[in-house]
């Protein structure tokens, strides 16, 4: 028996715009929450969510009903987030040097124009994101999902097509590096 998502996705695959819009309406909140963990700003978040759904539209011909639609879309979103980290890394490398440890404390202040709820939560999220942004893009994506979304390493390995052993090793190294970064910016 096919899920409502699957039948909607089948209709969208056949070119039904109404079904496509319904899929967007049903999934955009979850995708937005997930990609907010990756995005540096609200404008970036809008771009990432839009990019995810545009990739969904382009990829629908390849989607198979045997695949749960929500998982398939979630994979697109995590790949979009990882690509965003990679682009940012390249842009940062060419545009300006990475901020020094001293800059980190001031950079963690949330922007005044950013809409949001709890300012303390926003400030904490900014601080964590700022630290993660200084890791290699794949490491940052891994720890973003692990620390901020609470995903297990096994789930992350499955999501990115890595082996579990490689993922654990990568996580171990990334956390060690993150620890050093955190200690360097945090007064003891």
């Amino acid at each position: 028996m096919s899920s409502p998502d699957s039948s909607l996705a089948e209709q969208a695959k056949a070119g039904d715009l109404e079904a496509m819009n319904q899929l967007v309406a049903e999934h955009h909140a979850a995708i937005t929450r997930l990609l907010w963990r990756f995005a540096r700003s609200h404008a970036d978040l809008e771009d990432l969510v839009q990019e995810t759904f545009l990739r969904m539209v382009r990829g629908l011909p390849a989607w198979r009903p045997q695949q749960p639609f929500a998982h398939w879309l979630q994979r697109i979103a995590t790949n979009t987030g990882r690509d965003y980290f990679r682009r940012n890394r390249i842009r940062d490398r060419w545009q300006a040097p990475l901020p020094s440890a001293d800059d980190a404390a001031t950079a963690t202040q949330p922007e005044a124009v950013e809409p949001g709820g709890d300012p303390a939560a926003r400030a904490a999220a900014e601080e964590v994101k700022h630290l993660l942004a200084r890791l290699a893009p794949d490491d940052a994506a891994l720890l973003t999902l692990h620390h901020l979304e609470g995903w297990s390493l096994v789930d992350i390995a499955a999501q990115y097509g890595w082996t579990v052993t490689a993922t654990k090793l990568r996580a171990w190294r990334a956390r060690r590096q993150l620890r050093a970064l955190y200690l360097s910016v945090t007064p003891s």
Partner: peptide, 21 residues
């Protein structure tokens, strides 16, 4: 981390997203 996990994004413009899709 516990505080950061509580951070929620502001809602996006769904109509604009659907238009672009």
């Amino acid at each position: 981390l516990a505080r950061a996990r509580k951070d929620q994004p502001a809602p996006l413009d769904l109509a604009a997203l659907q238009r672009s899709v």
